[in-house]
Nucleic acid binder design. Structure first.
Lengths: 233, 233
DNA sequence: GGATAACCTTGACGTAAGTCAAGAAACGAG
DNA sequence: CTCGTTTCTTGACTTACGTCAAGGTTATCC
């Protein structure tokens, strides 16, 4: 049992937001956190519902998204292990501004709002870390707004591929880590359009697609597309 | 002179982020802040440039915006009196993620980054207030993303008009506080499109436009349009 | 391992909204 | 007030992208 507690404590210690917490606070936190788990596709919270606390994802991935009146989905961001889910709403005491669904089997700790508020009163380092977190998120949203408003779909896709490429060490061949339908939803479009654009890029010799595996053949062209080039008709 | 200092102190006291600061800290802050002023249209900072500090706007308005390769502009938000400009970049030590131009004659206090960092170390209340601020901004961006991706222009316009209406006490006649061109840029479209849509709404008897003055004649229809109604052909 | 379902691709088509161009109106400085 | 500049409107045209529909491919599960 005790090794299990030690396990969970070191798990917590690895969460960036709790990094600098003194052992005592971390131990207290451990006593409060409740482990929850969600199966693939399960809804975790719904837009508009009251926030009772927030989650610290320990395994799996969660998509946070909006839905249009006609059912089209826009993914705002994807939350993975060691990241916080719903923390802003918990902090502000506002209803969740979007839906969250598990994209795969997911486990998370749940921290009730009142305990969270007590924690941040006592531990300023948590607030500082959360601020840094929010700053990054804000920057991500800024880019998303820019992309949606000022770039067209090929530009967004090219930017995403180049981003993935960087994240994975700039190898020429990369694996898209979500389904094409979900990727479409992340890029602010629909599967049909994404499919057509991938086809066109393939035809132009910019890349090669086999399933979720993409090989980049012409990065220069991708950069040009990000910057508004029309890649011929 | 002393009444001028008292004046500026009470001006600071009215800034939400500094609301709860002890007098001593406020006095110190006052000694550090430098007053700056910008004429209409003047650039305050540029996307990608290093953040050396941030501004507290005291008069006027500033638009924070992105530009596309072809020069189209997307306004991210408009910063008015008593609000912070560039605070996130200063906090995170990241380059400014967007451009900022004065929309009219604007005055602001400038707080150098290092003094800001010293302040937030000492005064947790400032961080808490800034978090609350960021949370609101994040929510605003969430809505903007949703609008750009999932609504069409009439929906965004209708939402904006209803929002303005609420802000000004729900009177039927309201005054758009920015030029139509800027409004287009805020809604993620161009002046021509905005013009045509206003015309169509007027033709349908939903509203009446004379210059910047708009009279709402049918709020129900506006709500329907926000929710994806096509308002006839 | 074969059936059922989920996902992906392709085509034909419609439409919202952007581009280009040219007047009209409003604004601001002298 | 008047000239000149900026802003706004309108029209004809183009296009990126969404919709609908159908067939193909890949995954999932007894």
């Amino acid at each position: 049992m005790s090794e299990k507690r030690a396990d969970r404590l070191s798990q917590l210690r690895n969460i960036p937001v709790f990094m600098k917490l003194p052992d005592s606070a971390l131990g207290m936190l451990h006593g409060i956190l409740a482990a929850r788990s969600f199966h693939k596709g399960e809804n975790i919270f719904t837009e508009g519902s009251e926030s009772t606390g927030f989650y610290i994802v320990t395994k799996g991935r969660v998509k946070v998204f909006k839905l249009s009146a006609e059912g089209k989905e826009q993914i705002l961001h994807i939350v993975g292990a060691k990241e916080l889910l719903g923390a802003v709403s918990a902090f502000a005491g506002a209803p969740y501004p979007a839906h969250a669904d598990a994209m795969e089997k997911t486990t998370a700790f749940f921290l009730p709002r009142k305990d969270f508020l007590a924690l941040i009163q006592k531990e300023p380092s948590v607030v500082m870390n959360m601020m840094a977190n929010l700053a990054m998120r804000l920057q991500h949203f800024t880019r998303l707004i820019e992309d949606l408003s000022l770039k067209e779909v090929p530009g967004r896709l090219a930017a995403y591929l180049l981003y993935l490429c960087e994240r994975t060490g700039c190898s020429d061949v990369l694996e898209i880590d979500i389904s094409k339908g979900q990727l479409a939803s992340l890029l602010g479009t629909i599967p049909e359009t994404l499919s057509r654009i991938l086809r066109k890029m393939s035809d132009k010799g910019i890349l090669e697609v086999r399933g979720r595996r993409v090989r980049l053949l012409n990065r220069k062209a991708l950069h040009d597309i990000v910057n508004g080039e029309k890649m011929g008709l």
